[in-house]
Write a protein that binds this DNA or RNA. Structure first.
Length: 723
DNA sequence: GTTTAGGTTTTG
């Protein structure tokens, strides 16, 4: 009968001395000294308690105490009590239909967005959002929101989005009621697509969303779907753009460059091909933020967007890699005068330029879309499905090198090309004369490589901003954990969490136990998945690692401003067994949120990262190899194809010694320590040649090993040197 | 418990 889970509604709570509480509804007695470490005063009436890992047994004292005939007994180390508290019970809000608004009151409303402007700078102290909403009463109500902080504004992405606003005042303007935010204003926005995820967009620290709210949103969604009076969504991919049209473009920013004080160039793509020739804008390479050159294939997919006047300042804050929606973008056909330099192509007639004119009319503006929004996920799918391109623009790769010398051991092995290119090998001196953008075969020896400390070859890579960083060492991570657990102060758990305590097993038998605060997703709890994901507070790095044997996913959290927050992203945001996962500090909007695990078979790092707003960093291997043949030497990167080169995954290298050893053995074989180059095996490699920017913003030619795999065969024959 | 804006297309 162990590991039963009981959901008990506490009608009354009577502490019965140390380690024991009495629950009157079910009259079950909890006996263990487990409670010695739990603070019973934090359990209140109406709280829901979940006990797991207890044994239900006949109460031996039933005749004496007249209590329930059964009691719960702690069994084993895995017992947990989770308490769902309602201490900070949200007040009940009432919402006024838009047809029932009266001037001169403060109300809460729901509405479907039929028009909106992104926040713009007002002449006063605030940003101003302008929107118009409607509901089943068919009234269209204008709303004006003034907030100093951008994040407090409604996060509206599209016509049809649904907003819930608290504390807006009604007032007359031009004979109709309008809504303006007032003290205590807050807003939550939802996607308007019927049946889509109920993913609330808000900066409100604590907002309440119950079943009634979900129902209201779903009702508005299906009502809106049945309405024909709602304006159409003016979105279009590049492949469907009509000349002269105004449209909304969902895209990724690849690079940007200031043109003059009133105009900035944004180079964007959405993975689709525009049937019209796109305007090429030529700017000084050192004025460009992001890659300065692209392959012809990619170049043909890039739309050059010129943004003017008030949008220039907003564009300044954008980063290459950002996913954007540009509202009311205009496709301008024919030649047009562009400030700065344009190629001769701008004189031709059949091409499209894209202008985001000044002003905010028609909602003109730019918005950064979050990584996990459905439109961005779709955009990523389209972009990832594009045929892979040979040319790379990894300027970050050139900057990351560290060079500590160290020496290593022996043995032989061969390489095998898997590229399928049917081309003759060239010598290194010939290769250096070749133009970028092609692949070549070479027959070379490995003269040296960096880093000699192989663990430094392991890096963390952000696919969004393309930055590469070192994996933080344990000392740094441990210090972040101890910093985070210092004096946490009071912390109210998020509304979706069950809270409880978990015993940390002592590191040796008999050593004292420590109980730490944990939070679990209500939804996972209800599915009985108590071991799949915990949010763990106040643990040391070492304790966190020890708990990974009992829980599949551990997200370390801390108390911040009375709320649960993630640790600094320099620390892993997730522990899965021996694997640790990191997030990009630049690209994440991290917060402790409940993952949507409905119907999810396996809760993995991707699902958790997405829920937490973390841009997951990928483990990669990065090395620089000095190659030689009889004619020259050449430095080549081993990066994109490093995993297949070594036949290991970088993630495994991060987590296990075996994978690390196999890389060491390979490198020892290819480049025996202390040996003369005569002992180095000859390697058949496939190399790609490409241009990338160095730290000085200068283009330089780079070489990278691709499509080449180690074959674990000890070398017994000596290969002849190439001619 | 003050102000801002109050949709409606640049003129590149």
């Amino acid at each position: 009968m162990s590991h039963r889970m009981l959901h008990l509604l506490l009608q009354s709570v009577l502490p019965l001395g140390k380690g024991c509480i009495f629950i009157s509804l079910c009259s079950l007695t909890l006996i263990p000294d487990f409670f010695a470490c739990c603070c019973l005063s934090c359990v209140f009436l109406q709280d829901v308690v979940v006990a797991s890992g207890f044994t239900v047994g006949k109460s031996p004292t039933v005749h004496k105490d007249k209590l329930h005939t059964f009691n719960l007994l702690l069994s084993g180390d895995n017992a947990c009590i989770y308490v769902r508290t309602f201490i900070n019970k949200a007040p009940k809000y009432t919402y006024v239909r838009l047809g029932d608004l009266k001037a001169g009151s403060v109300v809460n409303v729901y509405g479907v967005v039929v028009f909106f402007k992104q926040p713009f700078k007002s002449r006063g102290t605030d940003f101003c959002s302008s929107l118009k909403i409607t509901d089943q009463s068919n009234q269209k109500i204008g709303c004006t929101i003034f907030c100093e902080k951008l994040e407090d504004h409604p996060k509206i992405f599209q016509i049809g989005d649904i907003v819930r606003m608290h504390r807006v005042k009604t007032q007359f303007f031009n004979d109709s009621i309008t809504l303006v935010n007032t003290f205590g204003f807050s807003v939550v926005t939802f996607d308007g697509v019927a049946g889509s995820a109920m993913d609330p967009r808000t900066s409100s620290r604590s907002f309440h969303l119950d079943q009634e709210d979900r129902q209201t949103v779903e009702e508005l969604r299906s009502w809106a779907a049945s309405q024909t009076i709602l304006p159409p969504v003016p979105s279009s991919p590049l492949s469907a753009v009509q000349p002269k049209a105004y449209f909304d473009l969902t895209c990724q920013l690849l690079a940007k460059a200031p043109i003059d004080t009133t105009c900035t160039l944004l180079k964007v793509w959405d993975g689709t091909r525009c049937p019209h020739t796109l305007l090429k804008v030529i700017v000084e390479p050192n004025a460009i933020e992001g890659p300065t050159s692209f392959s012809t294939e990619i170049e043909n997919l890039i739309a050059n967007v010129l943004v003017y006047d008030n949008h220039v300042e907003f564009a300044r804050q954008l980063k290459p890699g950002d996913f954007l929606r540009i509202y009311n973008l205009r496709a301008i056909p024919g030649s047009s005068k562009v400030p700065g330099l344009t190629s001769s192509q701008s004189e031709e007639v059949d091409h499209l330029a894209f202008h985001l004119h000044g002003g905010t009319a028609y909602g003109r503006g730019i918005r950064v879309l979050p990584e996990n929004s459905p439109d961005v996920l779709e955009l990523k799918r389209v972009i990832e499905a594009l045929p892979e391109d040979g040319e790379l623009n990894d300027s970050a790769m050139l900057e990351i090198w560290s060079t500590p010398p160290e020496s290593l051991g022996k043995n032989g092995c061969w390489m095998e090309r898997s590229c399928g290119h049917d081309i003759q090998s060239v010598t290194l001196s010939e290769l250096k004369q070749c133009d970028p953008g092609r692949v070549h075969h070479v027959r070379v020896q490995l003269r040296s490589y960096e880093p000699r400390r192989l663990h430094q070859a392991l890096k963390l890579y952000c696919s969004k901003c393309t930055s590469i960083q070192d994996v933080p060492d344990d000392e740094l991570v441990a210090s972040l954990f101890s910093e985070a657990s210092k004096d946490p102060g009071p912390c109210s758990p998020p509304p979706w969490a069950f809270s409880g305590w978990v015993d940390i097993p002592g590191d040796s038998p008999g050593s004292s136990k420590r109980a730490l605060s944990v939070h679990l997703s209500t939804q996972l709890m209800s599915e009985g998945k108590t071991k799949e994901l915990i949010f763990l507070m106040g643990s040391t790095l070492e304790e966190t690692c020890r708990l990974t044997s009992g829980y599949q996913n551990i997200v370390p959290v801390r108390a911040s401003g009375g709320h649960m927050a993630l640790l600094d992203l320099s620390a892993p945001f997730l522990f899965r067994g021996r694997k640790r996962y990191y997030g990009c500090r630049q690209c994440s909007e991290a917060a402790a949120r409940e993952p949507c695990a409905e119907g999810v078979e396996l809760i993995d790092e991707k699902i958790i990262a997405e829920a937490l707003g973390v841009q997951l960093l990928q483990f990669v291997l990065l090395m620089k190899l000095e190659l030689q043949d009889g004619t020259d030497t050449l430095e080549a990167f081993l990066w994109r194809d490093a995993e297949s080169f070594f036949r290991v995954s970088a993630e495994d290298v991060a987590a296990n010694q075996e994978a690390q050893n196999s890389i060491r053995q390979t490198m020892d074989s290819l480049c025996p320590a202390g040996g003369s180059t005569g002992e180095c095996p000859w390697l058949d490699l496939c190399l790609t040649v490409y241009r990338a920017e160095d730290d000085g913003g200068q283009n330089q030619t780079c070489y990278q090993i691709c499509h080449t795999t180690i074959t674990k065969t000890p070398s017994t024959q000596s290969d002849p040197a190439p001619a």
